[in-house]
């Protein structure tokens, strides 16, 4: 930070560069907080880690039953073809919602820590997202197994889901910075987050294929704006390329949204940094 032995102004906020360096220095704390979070969560469950697999399986089963078997939202795609599409979408969308919520609550649940210990507060939303990221591996695994049963042939190109999921996680990290700042300013935000995600859920083609369902071009463009539509398509594509095709604009939109969310999130979050935890 400064030369050893020299006094420095601790009441002055860090420059962006020093802040990022400070975050990096606290990377072990980010991991430890996420680990503590997961430990706490499983204290009272008998099944523990099994829930990571049960959650996406149960959720996929419910949506498959209601939307595919009863309502037939898989228009143009076979039931079996649609099942892996659904499994991956549902699992990852749930990660997005839970991680944003964890980020939103992170400054509030760690209030005592914030009052007592100085560290870059960005540690908290990041570790909230990281704890939820633990669920992504199992969700993708469930999706891949379902895909194999549906007749897809596994290959090394399936590994591309990992960078695609990372891109989604980065987007969510930015979003959780925004949510954390907003939730700290007003408790109403915590109530609002599920509604925003519910809307995005229905508008992102998680439970139906946008290409097969939306006919009008301008309506499809509207879906394109939804970051989840592009980001989830990118994750699905390596495993179910036919059911979930991607286009050039979708790739640009996915990266664009990620950049916007990270920059905006960091900027907004840092502006409130000095006042977090105050009465």
């Amino acid at each position: 930070m400064t030369t050893p032995g020299a006094l420095f102004d601790i009441s002055k906020p860090l420059s962006l560069r020093a802040y990022l360096a400070d975050l990096w220095r606290h990377r072990q704390l980010i991991v430890e907080l996420a680990r503590a979070d997961l430990k706490q969560r499983h204290v009272d469950t008998a099944l523990g880690n099994v829930w990571y697999f049960l959650n996406p399986i149960l959720l996929t089963a419910i949506y498959f039953w209601i939307f595919v078997l009863i309502l037939g939202t898989n228009r143009g795609l076979g039931d079996a073809e649609f099942l892996p599409y659904l499994a991956i979408s549902v699992g990852l969308f749930q990660f997005g919602q839970r991680a944003t919520m964890a980020g939103a609550k992170s400054l509030i649940v760690n209030r005592r820590l914030v009052r007592l210990v100085r560290f870059p507060r960005g540690v908290l939303p990041i570790s909230g997202v990281l704890a939820e990221l633990a669920a992504v591996g199992p969700a993708l695994f469930v999706g891949a197994v379902v895909a194999v049963f549906a007749g897809e042939v596994p290959g090394f190109d399936w590994l591309l889901v990992i960078p695609a999921a990372m891109l989604l996680a980065l987007f969510i990290t930015g979003l959780s910075f925004v949510a954390a700042r907003a939730a700290e300013a007003s408790g109403d935000v915590i109530n609002l987050v599920p509604w925003v995600f519910r809307l995005l859920f229905y508008l992102s083609g998680v439970i139906y294929s946008v290409d097969k369902f939306i006919d009008k071009a301008w309506q499809r463009d509207l879906f394109l704006i939804n970051p989840f539509h592009s980001l989830l398509s990118l994750v699905r594509y390596p495993i179910v390329p036919d059911a979930s095709p991607i286009t050039g604009p979708m790739i640009i939109i996915a990266f664009g949204w990620t950049a916007v969310s990270l920059l905006l999130g960091l900027w907004l979050f840092r502006r409130g940094e000095a006042n977090y935890g105050r009465e």
Partner: peptide
């Protein structure tokens, strides 16, 4: 360095550690 100051300056050799009455502990852990 935990409260923003309105005016003035706090210079230090390192960020101080604060030991307070209401600790940041996790009851479940």
């Amino acid at each position: 360095g935990l409260l923003p100051i309105e005016q003035g300056q706090v210079m230090a050799l390192a960020y101080p550690a604060l030991l307070g009455v209401r600790p940041a502990i996790r009851q479940q852990l």
